[in-house]
Design a protein around this nucleic acid. Structure first.
Length: 468
RNA sequence: GGCGACGUGGUGAAGUGGUUCAACACGGAGGUCUGCAAAACCUCUAUUCACCGGUUCGAAUCCGGUCGUCGCCUCCA
């Protein structure tokens, strides 16, 4: 079975067949770095991350590109308001973004192209669109894409161009278009705005053209997968298709994947609504980054997902259950023959996990397979029916599946200062049946965030995930 | 006004015609184990899948309608 994905453009769920066999090229619409990236944005990035991880788990080569929008109206506004350059502002928020995505274990994209470093590529595309008659210039030096020149416009969003509600919000950004539906490729120079000198004249790029330019430069004129939030279908991705295909004459993207919204309080998480949560804030409040990741990826990307404290609490508990099993397997020692039926158990779990992921990234079902295995392994640990080698093999499978999910504890965890001594002292106290000392030290370790458990495999410890 | 998604237990959620059809996680109740704990395991926690009607031998799953929620219609992940 191979990975089947739901393509927005065709509306079909179909097998992924990379243009170049064995090599998948993916472009993800990334953040506009004018402020902190909220966890709704991160849901869409993490779904792409899981996709990339799963493809690599399957042995495929993946080239993953995520753009950084570092020039747009909001950036200019904020930089001017703060009395700094747009570069200073965007550098700062890009650093924050990188710090946030590392915290939630997002795989670093292979390329994080910045819009301002691809102005030339955008200008070239626009020049070709002018030449072909798909674009026109206005008096202030702006350049617009002429929608009437592109009959397929509206296919992705399933919008009938003649039915659009025109005239409600189009005045604000009016640069003298021929048709209100036309969108800006290039914005003519304005006092106080950053401006670039290019072959198509001075000014700055529109938003949509940057993704066409950067994706084609880094991935080719046609590539396999383009991801983004559901709210980017229109107009952003619709515009990308029009301007890209008008230039190249070939299909821009093979598979469009769109992630539904993260909600908070029943409404789409959005800055405009004011119901946003930020990664750094949540972590500062004591939320476990792994639990946050779990909460954001554990539901299929095409389902709307409600974020709440309860969802984080549930995720924290689920993570703790996995941590406990990992600690138990690491500590497990039993001199006995290998369990005959364990290999079948493990391979069945793997098969179920993969079948779920193959089904358009059904993470919920994949987690069900994982947790069924967790229960089975816990059972066998309690029964002492595993050999030491069995425990090693079981743990290896968990680690392998976790290359896709990214939710297990790190391999090498350092103890906080003093903890190693306390653990050793406690072992000695227990040997002398000094329960008072044993319990006191257990409390001290707990205060350090270390949970101690006494088992047949001896004293076992694990780091507690932060809880609010 | 146009287009689209969704509505499963206390909560999140899998399941899209019938072999446990109600996974899995969290939460709750009881029990086992343990110096005490913790962790773990076991049992229980939806005769039911928004509502109404239809198709079918058979539907959470297909069709029609009703109600409700959310989103998009050029700032939006």
């Amino acid at each position: 079975m191979t990975l089947r994905l739901h393509d927005t453009l065709s509306g079909e769920t179909r097998p992924l067949e990379p243009l170049e066999p064995g090599h998948v090229r993916i472009y993800s619409c990334g953040p506009t770095v004018y402020g902190p990236t909220h966890i709704g944005n991160f849901r869409s990035f993490l779904f792409a991350d899981v996709l990339v991880r799963y493809l690599r788990y399957q042995g495929l080569r993946v080239t993953w590109v995520m753009n950084i929008t570092d020039i747009d109206d909001r950036i200019i506004e904020r930089a001017n308001a703060a009395g700094e350059t747009t570069a200073q502002l965007t550098d700062r928020w890009l650093a924050q973004f990188k710090s946030d995505f590392a915290a939630v274990r997002m795989t670093p994209p292979d390329v994080l192209p910045r819009a301002t470093e691809h102005i030339d590529a955008m200008a070239e595309l626009i020049a070709q669109l002018l030449e072909s008659g798909n674009a026109y210039r206005t008096e202030d030096g702006s350049i617009f894409f002429r929608i009437s020149s592109w009959p397929a416009y509206g296919r992705l969003a399933r919008l009938d161009a003649t039915q659009l509600r025109v005239g409600e919000r189009v005045e604000a950004d009016d640069y003298g278009k021929d048709d209100v539906r036309d969108f800006a490729l290039w914005k003519g120079p304005k006092p106080g705005d950053p401006s670039w000198e290019t072959g198509i004249g001075p000014g700055r790029p529109g938003w949509h053209i940057e993704c066409s330019a950067m994706s084609m430069r880094h991935l080719g004129l046609s590539f396999d997968i383009h991801t983004g939030g559901i709210d980017l279908i229109f107009p952003h991705h619709e515009d990308e298709i029009a301007q890209s295909e008008a230039v190249t004459g070939q299909p821009f993207v093979r598979t469009w994947l769109h992630c539904d919204h993260l909600r908070l309080g029943g409404a789409k998480m959005a800055r405009r609504v004011g119901n946003i949560a930020r990664v750094a804030d949540l972590l500062a409040e004591g939320t476990s980054p792994r639990a946050l990741r779990y909460a954001l990826i554990s539901v299929n990307y095409r389902q709307a997902l409600e974020y709440s404290e309860a969802s984080i609490d549930a995720a924290t508990a689920a993570i703790a259950r996995l941590d406990a099993l990992v600690a138990a397997l690491e500590a497990y020692r039993e001199g006995r023959a290998d369990a005959e039926d364990l290999p079948d158990e493990l391979s069945a779990a793997r098969t179920r996990f993969e079948a779920a992921m193959d089904d358009d990234l059904n993470v919920s079902a994949a987690l069900a397979a994982l947790f069924d295995l967790v229960r089975e392994l816990n059972r066998r640990i309690a029964d002492r029916t595993l050999s030491s080698g069995d425990a090693v093999r079981a743990l290896a499978l968990l680690r392998e599946l976790d290359t896709v999910l990214g939710i297990l504890p790190d391999q090498a965890e350092d103890l906080p200062p003093g903890a190693a001594e306390l653990l050793a002292t406690r072992v000695a106290a227990r040997a002398g049946r000094d329960w008072a000392a044993s319990d006191r030290i257990r409390d001290e370790l707990l205060a350090l965030g270390i949970a101690v458990e006494d088992t047949r495999d001896g004293q076992r410890w694990r780091r507690l995930e932060a809880v609010r």
